[in-house]
Amino acid sequence: MNCTKVKDQLVDLLYDELPVQEQQAIRNHLAGCPSCRDEWNNLHAGHSLLDRLPDDDPAPGIEVARLYQTAERRSNRSRRCWRAGAVAAGLVAALMIVVAGAQLRFERYPTHFVIAWDHPPKPAPVEPKIADPWPTLGAQQVRFQEINQLLELMAREVLAVESRQSTDLQRLKQRLLALETNHDQRWNLTLAEFSRKDRELADVRLSRPNEN
């Protein structure tokens, strides 16, 4: 027998749950194995310490009648809980039926009967009545005058903006023209400079015909 197997069976030996033959085999192993013997001693010590504890049996004192009463009380409480739950569920169900019932439609025709589950048909839209905001002619005239003044103001504002934009545009055009003129002058100067350099180069070549 190896130590692992013996150690696994030590509690069986301790609590007398091993066949006699195996008990003997383990005892033989313990006699020659200090490690297993050490564990056995520890287990046995723990067992002996527990054995020291007194049997703390109280005198029989439970009243069976009281147990019945307690069980009955709990059963009643549980039944009450169930009943309350059932009532609550019934109320919820009733509420749902009422809500759902609003969508149920019953229609009776000469030849058939219709039960439909949908939203009730919407009533035809009623044209909204628009009250006359200016019940008197005088009030209308005042209102028109106000609108005219408003339009004139807006027109003046638009003209002023247009005028400002036109001035700005004019200024920009002049600036562009000045830039173009300046550019042409500089270009002409550059061309003149090139021509002069060209001529100088030609003169230099003519004055040194035999150098190559």
Binding site: K7, V11, L14, N42, L43, G46
Partner: peptide
């Protein structure tokens, strides 16, 4: 079994 064994050893210790 393993737990009883462990319990006894712990108790002893």
């Amino acid at each position: 079994k393993s737990r009883v064994r462990t319990a006894l050893l712990k108790l002893r210790a």
